[in-house]
Amino acid sequence: MAGKRSIDPGEAVGVLAAQSIGEPGTQMTMRTFHYAGVAEQVPTGLPRLIEIVDMRRSPKKPTMDIYLTKQYSKDEESARRMAEEIEEINLSKIAEIRENFAKKEIEIIPSQQSMKEQGVTIGEITKKIKKVASGSIREEGNLIILKPKTTLLRSVRRATNKLKSLHVKGINGISRVVVLKGDGEYFLRTGGSNFEEVLKWDGVDSGRTYTNNIKEIEKVLGIEAARNAIIREANQVLAMQKLDVDVRHIMLLADAMTMDGSLKPVGRHGLSGEKVSILARAAFEETIKHLITAAVKADEDKLLGVTENVIVGQEVPVGTGTVKLMMKLGKK
């Protein structure tokens, strides 16, 4: 059965995949962007598809779906508590930071209310500040005063900026957490992603927790997981627009992006830029760069690909071009 569905040798699967994903992509641009939903500010449609294929460092809007172990997922209250714990709190969120340029000091005034909400004490905050800031620190009642060592105004400003983003509590990079209900349990959806730390967190069901940051998946779970993530993400984008693209095209794309064990974008810095053929690379982008390096290394183009053969004017090695006729000459 499976044999009947296999592809013929010489079929140009790459072109087929590219066209099969690309053509619906042209229709996508026109009807995308504003989709109503809960925390759905994550890019969908063509922008997201480009993001996946280009494999940038991190997506524009990274997001996670954090599933919880049974003891937390049952009721909203405990899920909410988890959410509060996980959400990253930095100093500027719970305290007012004032620069006193006259005294060259920085005054940190934590709000009593938000400290209570987050369950942190002044002592803890001071400890955290000590770790990052150099200079003398003293507590004056509800006030923490930091006097940086240097007296330069600029370094005072630098120290305040550092303090503003000082991590107080929660998981780094998780800026917003919403509790959602689905399938009879509560789970968390976040803005920002930190896959590694979240998986380590107590009460998180690490088996089901998911991030849309494919690079992170590759780092934490390995290349196969990344391949699956590419397929899943791309498929989801296309399915959302009700575009019917065969998964195998997307699988081929994911395979190509992950085939050598690392994540590679499609394009100049990845797949196309690493083609064996000099002519094919030169025809794509940065022509001169490729020609010069080829000249310096005395490279040889074996003319095994499609583009090269179009350039020199030979049959391309796909389809009917894969077939060669051989003849045994009779003995003379």
């Binding site: 010489g10 079929e11 140009a12 072109v15 087929l16 590219a18 066209q19 499609v306 179009v310 004017g313 030979q314 049959e315 391309v316 090695p317 796909v318 389809g319 009917t320 071009g321 894969t322």
Partner: peptide
């Protein structure tokens, strides 16, 4: 158009067009 011929595996036709 070139991609289309490649996609169909029509190597000889492509060569005829391009050469």
């Amino acid at each position: 158009e070139r991609d289309c011929l490649i996609g169909h595996g029509a190597s000889m036709l492509l060569k005829e067009r391009m050469l």
